[in-house]
Design a protein around this nucleic acid. Structure first.
Lengths: 262, 262
DNA sequence: GCAGGCGGTTCATTATTCACACCTCTGGTT
DNA sequence: AACCAGAGGTGTGAATAATGAACCGCCTGC
């Protein structure tokens, strides 16, 4: 069920923007594992530069190898930089924070954020791992992923983040079905309070979702009109990204799109 | 000696710019491990998004989590972007390819490259993991690292990359000592043929080297004058980076520096 | 000086990984 | 068409590596 490698990699998820440095005991506590175990894992992670240890405070933080790997990936499959441009346009159009993420295992990895220009706008954690079931981006992806993967995702224990987080698999399936029809997913404060999300899927060359483009707005600001408008803008941005990746949205997606002109 | 986590992370090193996608069998062959073992490790790596698998070719490549982790690290400890500026200046001054790397476990992680402007200049692999003993950057780091770590490094089996790679620990120790005195390390085609490297250490807040700035030039172009000139320029760039990181080169380094003025 | 936190280590128990075999599928050759 | 070679992936006893409680030395704040 959970290999050692699995647990070790899981440790990396605890290093967030808000907690960039962690100690051995704290990490062990969070991971629910023994100190000795965690210590050995941390040793391995440090050895490969995924983490590094401050020699004075003894705290661990993400290491230089993470930069190397990202550079490496960008060199072979440039995405982040291209995305940046699309997000900039998106934020310019809407004034709201825009945001791109890609499927990374069993979660979404944020790969780009452009902060909104309004005086009040959503601020997102740069390197957070987002849950599928509680975010608009996640639902948008699930709506265009192979059904068996969706079933697998929904069969897990679904964490609750706010009072409004939906954790019932059947209800989520309905939301996914709706997102499939609308080609847009919405989330109303299901991950963070006061944040409303609107997301559209980005497709890979296999015709399935490989990520999502999203707009995050203060929930109180949303109106039906805005939802409609932002939905269209986000959808267009996602289609643009898909094409720039060298892929093409599936017919079932495009045929319903009245603005299909290149 | 080598934990499972260790081996699994080692797999990531095989994904280079020249080989961005690898299959199961090939990875198993390179890692010298069994297919079943590698398959399980790949599964774990995929689960966390460190790798992803092309659904049609079944090949593996670096995943989106690498981007997330790098973003995360940059958000907490911004280095890459600052480095970029310094490297640009360095290349503008010299016309040659400049390059920054950080200690990442038992190797150096490339975190920045700016290609030279000369018609003929060195081109480096973006995300390669560099060996300490065969690169100028590595020697520069070793010269200002805790002696016991140096001993540990040199006690390993040292790979040979070109006919001129030095693999004898005592000789390397001499080169390290020389680099300590000169505050600059040179490498003459010890890692790649026809490439001459000049590197200076970047210091962390603990007073030890945490990385290096380097210039890579075509070997045939080097002259004693250029070596002298480039050495000074690289050293100044490295000191600048050290200070921008909020650290300070140790007295033993600066006191020998005639251009110590801020 | 003592209690409680920390990072780190040790060692017998135990669960995991390992290596080899095998299966299926694809793609090229005869 | 038959065939073979290599691909990715999956089971199974034997061996190895992970585990976790106790423990150590260190530091900070009572």
């Amino acid at each position: 069920m959970s290999s050692t490698v699995d647990k070790a990699l899981g440790l990396l998820a605890y290093f967030t923007q808000t907690h960039p440095e962690l100690g051995l005991s704290e990490l062990a506590r969070r991971a629910g594992a023994d100190k000795a175990t965690v210590h050995r894992m941390l040793g391995a992670l440090c050895k490969h530069g995924m983490l590094e240890q401050d020699s004075s405070t003894k705290l661990y933080r993400l290491g230089a190898a993470t930069l190397r790997l990202a550079r490496n990936r960008e060199a072979s499959f440039p995405i982040a930089m291209m995305i940046e441009g699309v997000l900039n346009k998106l934020t310019a159009k809407t004034g709201e924070t825009s945001h791109a993420s890609m499927i990374a295992g069993n979660a979404l990895a944020t790969i780009g954020i452009v902060e909104g220009t309004s005086a009040i706008h959503v601020t997102l954690d740069a390197g957070e791992s987002l849950p599928f079931h509680a975010t608009a981006s996640g639902i948008a992806c699930l709506a265009f992923m192979p059904p068996e993967r969706v079933r697998l995702m929904l069969s897990r224990k679904l964490a609750s983040f706010t009072e409004r987080t939906e954790t019932s698999a059947p209800v989520l399936q309905q939301m996914i079905d709706l997102a499939y029809v609308q080609r847009i997913a919405h989330s109303d404060q299901s991950y963070e309070a006061d944040v409303y999300g609107i997301a559209a899927p980005v497709f890979g060359s296999d015709g399935h979702a490989c990520g999502a483009i999203a707009i995050a707005t203060p929930a109180h600001r949303m109106t039906p009109n805005l939802k409609q408008l932002f939905g269209t803008v986000v959808r267009d941005a996602a289609i643009e990204v898909t094409r720039k990746l060298g892929a093409e949205p599936p017919q079932s997606y495009l045929s319903r799109n009245r603005k299909a002109a290149a």
